[in-house]
């Protein structure tokens, strides 16, 4: 009986430790482009996500716009999001960096009816 309790306590301790330290191991989006981010960068595991979501084309996310028009068959994975999406809305591009990230993820997750859509589901503390 006593051993059982010690064993269970040990398991519980391990679980707590896992929960407590697991955050540090999460793969997150780089949010260094934001001046004073209020939340930690969104958790996003690129390859795992795409495999699960069945996304093969890079330009689903890494799109290229010419003016207001989406350029098909071109992709922009070699450039940073912040190259086009600035922190404040500008005449050329009204979609701010923050909005670009949020809409890119959430719109799709709502359309697919799966994946995280709430603040804390990506910006895990």
């Amino acid at each position: 009986m006593k051993n059982k309790i010690i064993f269970l306590s040990f398991i519980l301790f391990l679980l707590t430790a896992v929960v407590a330290f697991s955050n540090t191991e999460l793969e997150r989006l780089d949010n260094s482009d934001f001046q004073k981010p209020q939340r930690p960068g969104a958790v996003f595991e690129h390859d795992g996500h795409n495999e699960m979501a069945g996304i093969d084309d890079c330009n689903v996310c890494h799109h290229v716009y010419e003016g207001k028009k989406l350029v098909e068959d071109e992709s922009s994975e070699d450039s940073s999001c912040a190259d086009c999406h600035s922190l404040k809305a500008v005449v050329d591009n009204s979609i701010t960096l923050e909005l670009a990230y949020h809409k890119r993820c959430k719109n799709c997750h709502f359309e697919q009816n799966k994946g995280p859509v709430l603040c804390g589901e990506c910006h895990i503390k």
């Binding site: 209020q38 939340r39 809305a89 909005l99 949020h102 809409k103 959430k106 603040c119």
Partner: peptide, 17 residues
């Protein structure tokens, strides 16, 4: 404000979290 911004692209000054 983030949610309002996503819906209407309108935002205003925010409190620090």
């Amino acid at each position: 404000i983030v949610l309002v911004n996503e819906a209407f692209q309108v935002s205003w000054i925010a409190l620090d979290d």
